[in-house]
Design a protein around this nucleic acid. Sequence first.
DNA 1: AAAAAAGGTCAAAAACATTGACATAATTCA
DNA 2: TGAATTATGTCAATGTTTTTGACCTTTTTT
Lengths: 154, 154
Amino acid sequence: MSNTVHDNQHFKKIALFFFAYRSFNEKPDIIAEKYNIQRVHHRLLFFIGNLPGLSINELLTLLEVTKQAVNGPLRQLKDKKYIITDTDESDKRIKRLFLTESGKQLLDELTEVQIEQMESIFNQLGKEHEDSWIKVMEAYAVERPNSKYFFDSL
Amino acid sequence: MSNTVHDNQHFKKIALFFFAYRSFNEKPDIIAEKYNIQRVHHRLLFFIGNLPGLSINELLTLLEVTKQAVNGPLRQLKDKKYIITDTDESDKRIKRLFLTESGKQLLDELTEVQIEQMESIFNQLGKEHEDSWIKVMEAYAVERPNSKYFFDSL
DNA sequence: AAAAAAGGTCAAAAACATTGACATAATTCA
DNA sequence: TGAATTATGTCAATGTTTTTGACCTTTTTT
């Protein structure tokens, strides 16, 4: 079976990823703008909020970016009191990252619209579709370093 | 049902989108690098290849960016002979975009790895999962302007 | 004591996208 | 026909995100 530019079946499925990802990020992006932060900050809040006590290195592995890429945004979140850091007891080189109460509130606001959107779709299509979607996305996600932190919990 | 940072079920599903999208783009990004182009160029090739005769404005609507954002990459693709433009017959203001033979070859190479990855996942999980995944992603994608161009074809 | 690891920071550069302004050619509308 | 609109192109300034590379401190491990 050849892979040509005329194969609409495949093209459509590829396009779906592009379009869906945009719709998935659209609303939180608008909310983030109100707080003068960007999608990177949202990601940082997301991972710190869901994996409290995360170290910088663990964060870098999850995001697959350099420390320089998170250093600025992380400092800004700290300045705005959305996150706090705590030195690890047993290894004082390691910083543990946590959300503050206002950080949790902001993350909740950002997350809420994504959950509402998702629940609306899953409620409309049914539980089997939700389970299937999760399985497919998991198959993609397992390639990512440290993504197992998320899959173990479910 | 409250939406808190402790709700692992929701967090996991949100994280899946992030991780899966990265895995989906990883391989074509590496191929693009070999050709000294970036993901933007890949997108342009993708939409022009799948919707031959697309106008600039239609492209801008699909990508949801400004004309300045595509002007550069589009010129580079033209310089590299991956695309050609043709003036519309009935409205000579409009440029129609097409892939050249080498443009089609490049797009095929970029697309191939995404299709292989996707087919591997769907073959492993089964047809029902594929259909469910498509339905969910479509529910996300319908919000996008002009994305109907793709859904009509299936 | 030396090496490695975790984190921080500075600088240069590239990639990506924006707003704003201005221009041309073609089409439509009053 | 003349005016307005549309499609496209380009220049400039700006902002964000991210990268590579270098260098540094502190702490832990060997």
